[in-house]
């Protein structure tokens, strides 16, 4: 089938199978930054923001995401103009193999938009659905705190 997808502020017309997931469709159409980790909605590597809400794109039918606002990590900053959360991840040592990183950054964005000054407990539970096998999470949590401080001082 055919459908219109609004990804990172751009509208695209894509053809896809009726049972394709949003993850399949994004990856097939130039968004490899959305990673496939488990295909069962657990590891969170495929997280995107759908209408501002953090979802596992492997558990969303593409058909249900048509015409909706989809944000991937490539839509929030670039190498030359990174988003403050991206910078905070770099500076805090929150990046190792990088496979979970785009998703963890989007989880952070979803959290900080809702709750600009989260407690440690709120940070831990906001990241609970984003597995990381490298870092032990400590530096990811530090990055969220750093981003929170910086973003609220900008407001």
């Amino acid at each position: 089938m055919k459908g219109s997808f609004l990804v990172n502020g751009r509208t695209n017309e894509w053809t896809f199978e009726p049972d394709a997931t949003l993850l399949d469709v994004l990856r097939a159409n130039g968004h490899p930054e959305v990673h496939r980790g488990c295909d069962e909605g657990v590891c969170g590597s495929c997280s995107v923001l759908l209408e501002g809400k953090l979802v596992n794109s492997c558990q969303v039918f593409a058909a249900s995401a048509m015409e909706k606002d989809i944000l991937t990590v490539a839509g929030i900053g670039t190498i030359h103009e990174p988003h403050p959360i991206q910078t905070a991840f770099v500076e805090s040592g929150a990046v190792q193999c990088g496979f979970c990183t785009p998703a963890a950054i989007l989880a952070t964005l979803a959290l900080l938009r809702k709750n600009p000054n989260p407690t440690d407990e709120e940070i831990h539970s906001a990241l609970d659905g984003n597995y990381c096998r490298c870092t032990g999470y400590v530096k990811i949590i530090e990055a969220v705190r750093l981003a929170s401080r910086r973003m609220s001082s900008h407001d």
Partner: peptide, 21 residues
Amino acid sequence: ANVPRHDALAKVTGRARYVAD
């Protein structure tokens, strides 16, 4: 020294390409 990690910016912006990509 804690220099910036060389691969970090590519990884945080989604530019890093793994084999499936």
